[in-house]
Structures are given as structure tokens and as C-alpha cells.
Nucleic acid binder design. Structure first.
Lengths: 146, 146
DNA sequence: ATATGTTGATATTTATAATTATCAACAATG
DNA sequence: CATTGTTGATAATTATAAATATCAACATAT
């Protein structure tokens, strides 16, 4: 098996994740409610975090604590991700998509009724997985024109 | 004379601006220090605000108060503006430009040593003038690919 | 089946961003 | 030249976002 995939395995229950990150459980739930993180859910609806999830959360934390960007600020910044370009939406899907016009939160925080996003798992999507910080978003914006 | 240009005339001293906006003078100075606004300066370094300046500040205020985006959040979001595309930088100028890679504040909050931006007045630049809110930034990101 | 951990929701506390007040030095106005 | 407004800087205050605590109901594990 590909050993890199281990880091994607959701093996940590919420308490362990909180201990490893040195934050409280309600904070983890808050970030999720705000759409900054999408942990895996078990059959019985219990959260499970992977190593990559933890890294993502540390990144979010840095934005809040060091860069002083509010949660809504992070959401607004992530809303600038040109997801339609990344996943290659059809023009129709794109124009019908809420997240194409919305600038308040990232695409994965929206309920999608049409297009690929309606069926795909956001947690597994490149758009979600690749973007948790400003620099990555800007990098992508730079590359659209090329 | 073009009557529309009147709205760009910097005719309000800081006290008047503060009264019209119902905020304090130090707040206006803060927004400027953070690079969210560039008022005109008289020969003796006194600030003067135009009607458009006031509208811009109201827009900023809405982001802070209603959208709950922190000042640093607004700056991060504005750092996503593809300014090099808008003003049509040469590839060389672009690659040498700080604001091309930086994702912490908008281009006009940087000191520019090379390119057009070194000589131009940011206050007069389309990039500064057109962008004070998220939706305009996203609109522009949408249009790059087209 | 009893311990321990989870869920979502609400209430509370804490941290800190945003705003304002105050200051001496300088500018404008009449 | 006296009045009123400005400048930047620092200190104090206020507002509120972020984090945490608490809860009953449900899940897991031994």
C-alpha cells in the first residue's frame, strides 16, 4: 500500500485531535461548523481526523493567531479560489453554481445541487484539500492567466 | 468640466469626513495606516477626502461590522487581486514585484521599486480605485480565464 | 451494564481587535 | 497672534470574535 496514503487515514477521534493540537473539542467543532475543515464521519456520525486534517487545522490556527485573520476573513479569502477552473466545470454548471458568484465562503461550505459537486465528496476534492492558506490561493490565481 | 469628476475631488478635511461617516478621526488614520484607504494629502501633509473616498470607507466598514472580516482579513483578501493582469505588467516587472508573491496585503500597500508602480500614484490606479470589496475581487478573478 | 467518549446546542469566559482619548508639535484661518 | 484644526504616537477603552465549559442524549468498548 502507498505509505503516503496513511496520512489521509482518519484515525484520530476528536479528543485525541484536540490533545495533539492543544485546543479544545468545541473549537474543533467550531472550525467545522464554519466550513474550514471537513473531518471524516463514521457510520454513527462520530468525527475522525487524519494527519493531514491536523496539519490543515494548524494552518488555520496560524492564520487566526499569527496573521490575525478572522474566521470570516479566512472564509472570504477562500471564496476567491477559482474552483471552476480547478475542477474544470462546464460553463453551464459554473454559471448555475452558487459558489461561483458568492464571495463569503469557500465552495465546499455550500450545498451544491448541480454539477459534479452535487455528487462528489468535498473532503476528497482537490479544491478543498489543496487550499487552507492564502499563499496557495494566490499561486492558483497567478496560474489562471498562464 | 465633467461633473462626475467632482466625486473624486478631495474636499473634505479629516474632521468633516469623520463626522459624515460617524466614526472617529483615529479610526480614519488607522484604516490608512493599514493600507485600506489612501486619502489625498495637501502640500503640508494634511488629509483630504473625496466623496469616493467616503464611499470606499463605508464599504470597508461594512466588511468589518457586517461581514465580520478583520482588517487583516480584508488585506489578505485584497492581496488576491491579480493586479499584474489588470495593469498589464511585463513578465519581468511582474516577477520582480513584491506584491505578485505576497499574500498579506494589497499591492498598493507595498513600496514599489520597479515597473510602472514605482512612478504611478496608487491613489489614481484602477487597481486601488476599483477594489474595496470581495465581490469585485472575485468578479475579476472570474474574468481572467475568459 | 458500567466506564468513557461522543453528539449538538447553549451559555459563559477569555483574548484581542477595533475604536477612541489624549498628547505636544505643527498648520491654517481670519 | 490667537483660535481652531491638523499631525503622528501612545495609552486606554470598548466591542466582540474566539475559545471554552456545560448539558442531556446517544455511542463505544470492555
Amino acid at each position: 500500500m502507498d505509505l503516503n496514503k496513511l496520512d489521509d487515514k482518519p484515525i484520530f477521534p476528536i479528543r485525541t485531535a484536540a490533545e495533539l493540537l492543544k485546543i479544545s473539542i468545541p473549537t474543533l467543532r467550531l472550525y467545522e461548523k464554519e466550513g474550514l475543515i471537513i473531518p471524516h464521519k463514521t457510520n454513527s456520525n462520530q468525527r475522525a481526523y487524519s494527519k493531514h486534517d491536523l496539519e490543515r487545522i494548524e494552518c488555520i490556527r496560524k492564520s487566526i493567531k499569527k496573521s490575525k485573520i478572522s474566521i470570516n476573513g479566512i472564509k472570504a479569502m477562500l471564496a476567491m479560489i477559482p474552483c471552476w477552473q480547478i475542477i474544470g466545470c462546464s460553463d453551464l454548471d459554473r454559471d448555475n453554481c452558487i459558489s461561483y458568484s458568492d464571495s463569503s465562503k469557500p465552495c465546499w461550505a455550500h450545498k451544491h445541487d448541480n454539477g459534479v459537486c452535487a455528487t462528489n465528496e468535498c473532503r476528497e476534492c482537490t479544491v478543498y484539500k489543496d487550499f487552507s492558506e492564502c499563499s496557495k490561493v494566490k499561486e492558483t490565481i497567478q496560474n489562471i492567466g498562464k
